[in-house]
Nucleic acid binder design. Structure first.
Lengths: 154, 154
DNA sequence: TCATAGTGGTTGCTTTTGCAACCATGTCAA
DNA sequence: TTGACATGGTTGCAAAAGCAACCACTATGA
């Protein structure tokens, strides 16, 4: 056993949330240039586009649930995409509060272009890690995303 | 080989930067409550505190390098911590532009308390993954953070 | 059928970030 | 020395995120 009065000081560099955040920023940043510099999208806009492109029409609330994004962010992203003619709304059949969101043909095009570039970028990242490590990483990240353990008070 | 005209649509849920970001947010959020609700710190303020607590006095530029944080964020965080009496500045010996930053005794105390809670939280996260997966995760995350491959244009 | 509470979505206001410009000092070479 | 460029740090302004309040509608159940 290790000496228990040890009391090593806390080291940020070994703190999982910090490492995850650094990795997310590092990997996110270069792709951000694609959707930002080339299309003027916000990260949330890109996400909304990606979800609608992948899954077809759905409501804003569904996008929130799928992508764990706050509704106000989604609301504004939807408005922006609509203003640029990439997305259209139509009243939802069953619930008069909700609207079905769908990409316009132009939105679809953008999604496909951006999607191809994203796939290529993802492939490049995974190649750097090797297939086994990449698969493991997926698994672990999903495990971290899923439930959410509450914080143990000291 | 797999059929090459395949053209599967891009799926956000398998995009590494997205997964990393989700995991970072999920794990970061509950600890954020500790430093935010209990101390009113910003994430950057907590990082600055953590670095000074761990490594002792250093300049703002060094904090930037160590924690990959933009200088303006650090600058403001330092100002805020100073205003609260948790940090003090002194002119750097060798370079008259720079200032050595150090935690005050009160800052040290806060760091120690928060550090203990961070360690406990980190341990809880790692326990959920198992020791082997946690170690692998560290390794892979550091690999992702380190170099940064440029984006292949399509 | 009416009150109550929940859900989909938007808006306003504040905090935080990101970026560019800036000042002061330092470095290097002509 | 002097000019050009780099570096440490701050500030101002604009974009983005977070939060609470809100409107419209739906669901529940007394």
């Amino acid at each position: 056993m290790r000496g228990d009065g040890a009391e090593r000081p806390f080291d940020l560099e070994e703190f999982l949330p910090y490492l995850l955040n650094q990795a997310a920023e590092a990997t996110g940043k270069s792709f951000q240039n694609v959707y930002r510099a080339d299309y003027g999208f916000t990260r949330t806009q890109w996400r909304v586009l990606a979800n609608l492109g992948r899954f077809g029409a759905m409501t804003a609330a569904e996008i929130c649930r799928i992508s764990h994004t706050e509704k106000t962010k989604v609301s504004r992203a939807v408005a922006a995409l609509e203003a640029r003619g990439l997305l259209s709304r139509s009243p939802a059949a069953t619930d008069r509060r909700a609207e079905d969101l769908a990409l316009t043909p132009r939105g679809q095009e953008v999604f496909e272009t951006l999607g191809r570039r994203a796939i290529a970028y993802d492939r490049a990242l995974r190649d750097r890690l090797g297939p086994a490590a990449a698969r493991d990483l997926d698994r672990v990240l999903r495990a971290l995303i899923a439930p959410g353990p509450t914080l143990a008070d000291e």
